[in-house]
């Protein structure tokens, strides 16, 4: 395998998909974030912690513009990060993935990883806009979320490996994983925070959030698959003797 080319392809596809994710968030998710932070501000005014003055508004607007630029910046960082995990799993599993081209193989893997380490955890611990989370439960919520993702991801790999070892059909592995994650889903405690924010805002935010994260996974599969198809980093370097 061409090591350097492999790493470059993985990082480039992660960055590009992350840029798409961050850009899409500016369009689809930011309106809900602005609305939720507006509610937070109303709470600050009501409690007397801040005053609704033109100075506050000017400072707040500048701050939000800076945070929105961070949305795109963080999109690229997160894109490269998740893309790196995707690249590792793709390289290790490429020979076992269905599909004749690397684009199809990458899309299949993106779909599996989207389901197991994003969508199922999202159903258990859905995204929330600002104002919902209680600062006092942040560590517990982080532990629960990461634990569920890890259990789901390693569970999927475990059942796949087990079916390979036992030489059973893939459908058995899928059924085993489904039963396993179903039990974990019910057994793990839910998000401890009470939602007092209007539910239509929360639900709209969740829908938009799930849409842009899904767009990220689709872009990641397409871009990495296309680059892999084109540059073929898995091919050995042919030694030349002069």
């Amino acid at each position: 395998m061409k090591t350097f080319l492999f790493i470059v392809i993985v990082i480039a596809s992660g960055a590009a998909a992350g840029l798409i994710h961050g850009g899409a968030n500016l369009i689809f998710v930011e309106p809900s974030l602005d609305q939720a932070i507006g509610i937070e501000n109303q709470h600050l005014f009501a409690s007397g912690e801040e005053k609704d003055t033109p100075e506050f508004r000017a400072q707040y607007d500048d701050y939000r513009i800076w945070q929105k630029s961070g949305q795109v910046f963080a999109g690229v960082i997160l894109g490269v990060s998740i893309g790196s995990l995707f690249g590792i799993v793709f390289a290790l599993s490429r020979n076992s993935l269905p599909g004749k081209t690397d684009i199809k193989k990458a899309l299949v893997l993106a779909g599996i990883m989207w389901l197991t380490i994003y969508f199922i955890p999202f159903l258990k611990y859905p995204a929330n806009p600002p104002t919902v989370g209680n600062p006092e439960t942040i560590v517990l919520r982080e532990i629960l979320y990461l634990t569920f993702i890890a259990i789901s991801g390693f569970g999927a790999v475990g059942f796949y490996k087990l079916s390979q070892k036992l030489k059973t059909k893939k459908i058995i592995a899928i059924a085993g994983y489904a039963a396993f994650i179903g039990i974990v889903f019910v057994a793990m405690p839910g998000n401890p925070d009470q939602i007092t924010t209007p539910m239509d805002l929360v639900e709209h935010f969740r829908m938009m959030s799930a849409f842009t994260v899904s767009l990220y996974w689709l872009s990641l599969g397409l871009i990495l698959g296309s680059l892999w198809n084109h540059y073929k980093p898995h091919k050995e370097i042919t030694p030349s003797f002069n």
């Binding site: 994710h21 961050g22 968030n25 998710v29 930011e30 974030l33 800076w66 945070q67 929105k68 961070g70 949305q71 910046f73 963080a74 999109g75 960082i77 997160l78 994003y118 955890p121 999202f122 611990y125 859905p126 995204a127 929330n128 806009p129 600002p130 989370g133 209680n134 600062p135 942040i138 919520r141 982080e142 979320y145 935010f205 959030s209 842009t212 994260v213």
Partner: peptide
């Protein structure tokens, strides 16, 4: 945290 705040929420990470 403040710089990545919006993506943290948008990507589904717990936040306050």
């Amino acid at each position: 945290h403040e710089l990545t705040h919006d993506m943290r929420h948008a990507a589904g990470f717990p936040c306050h």
